[in-house]
Structure formats: structure tokens, C-alpha cells
Amino acid sequence: MTVAVSVRQLRKAFGPVRALDGIDLDVREGEFFGLLGPNGAGKTTLISILAGLTRADAGAVSVMGYDVVADYRQARRSLGVVPQELVFDPFFTVRETLRFQAGYFGLRKTDAWIDEILAKLGLTDKAHANMRSLSGGMKRRVLVGQALVHKPQVIVLDEPTAGVDVGLRQSLWAFVRELNQSGHTIILTTHYLEEAEELCGRIAMLKEGRVVALEEKQTLLHGYEGVTIRITAPAAPAAFAGKLVRREGDVLFFNLANYAELEQLLAAYRTGGIRFTDLALQEADLEDVFLRIMGRAS
């Protein structure tokens, strides 16, 4: 196994906030790796340290075997980052932006590859448009392009689909998948859990600067034993309040250990005199796992 990204005992504090509190993880070469966690979990901080944008307080990080501080040149050559914030330079056009980015890596005569990137991202007809004139989703695509100009082995996408329409989201994922299949290592953060479920092989979940889960996606989903029940009812029986994991108006979601508990739940509804109008069994999805892990970790 070749390690694409290695993180050891990584710590970073911003004043009293421990953004990263001892992170250990390895991403293998060629993986499609998901980095999940609620707002403020430390995902962006981790990525910033990986990219050399932020200095760690303690610990070591390497990309393709290159330490991000000691061998920063090689480390940065191996890494492409799509930042979470929608940033751009209003002085330049789309093509200039991509050309400059390639140039900063010492690459010349990159027009053919830039044309290919523009085509893949649906930006060909915007090549000469000023960055300022692009819509938010288009600016996001340029950011993706900028991360790819130097053909890095490891590509990190920090919430790349925020504010991107469905059509582009599909084509973006097709493109990223293609990159993954051609050998690139992908690290993805997203709040759309169905995206992570569809795309990622292995998933790390972060909470308050710690890794609270790090598994193959299948293991995570199957490790989720028990049953999720969706019931439409005005309330939950008092005895089952602890098993209620989510609520959307009248729709209640319970996590139960087994079917025997389901019988007890239904009995509790009957004896409590609470009427329910709809009942369904749910397949475990990443969202359930996520909520359960985040709930347990607190």
C-alpha cells in the first residue's frame, strides 16, 4: 500500500479553540476518500495544513511521502486543492487565471491541457470572460480547474458542490471519478452525505478536531445494525424519546436495536393512545450512520 497522504498526531489551536486535537489518518494512493463532519469539525483546517496554507502546532503531515513543511515544493506539486471559499482575482479572464496558475508551478505551453479542462468543466465559451462576470457556480468550476492545471496526484475538494446546480454537479462528479479511475487520489469533504455515499470508498468522520470514525463505507453502513423506523405521528412515546434520532415535523425517525423493539414501540403507541398515520422501515444510509456517530461522540 502506498500512502498518498499521511497525518500524524496533528494539532492546531486558534486561541482557545482546538480546531484539530490529535488527528491520525492515512489516505492510500488511488483512494476516493471522504472527510465528513459537522460545521467547525476541523475539515478545512486539516486541508489548509495539508496545503501549507496554515502551520500546525504539532504533528506531521506528508503528501506522496513529502513533508509539507520540509519538502514543501514536492508536496505542493503533488497536491491540488479546491478551496471552500469562492475566491477569484477580478483582474483577469478565465484563461489567464488558469494560465497563471500553471505558470506558478513552472509549467509553460499548457494551452492544450487548459482547453481540455475548460471543456470538461463546460467553460469553453467563457474562456475570455472576466472572472468578475461569472456566476457563482462558474467561479467554482474555475477553482476546480485551477486545482488541476499542474496535474497533481492528490486532489482535495473542500465542498466543491456548494452552490452548484444539479447538471454541473453530475458532470463534475463524472469528471472527478474519471480522474480517480486514472489513478488520482481524491479527498472530498461535503455536507451532502448522499454524495459521499455514492462516491467515496473510505470515510473519516471528524468532530471537534478528532477522528470519530474511519472505515470503509461498506463497513460503516453494515456496521450500522438495528432498524430505522419512520413514523408519522404527532409525538413519540415517553419511553422511546431516547431512541428518536431525527424529527421532521410530524415525521419521526427511531433507531431500534431489533424487531422486538419495534413491537414494543408499536405497543407503546397503542397504550399511549397516540395515533400514527404512516409507518415505514428505512434502509440504513450514511446520514443515519453520521447522525448516530455524531450523537454518540458528543
Binding site: 501549507g52 496554507l53 486543492v81 475566491v87 477569484f88
Partner: peptide, 17 residues
Amino acid sequence: QSKITGNLIFILLPPLS
């Protein structure tokens, strides 16, 4: 300007010494 608009990262990400 680059700091405030955030596009400074474009020169912080590449291997520029």
C-alpha cells in the same frame, strides 16, 4: 487586495519560495 479577497491562496498553494 489578495489577502482580503482571499485569492492570495493562488500564490500560497504553488511551490513558490
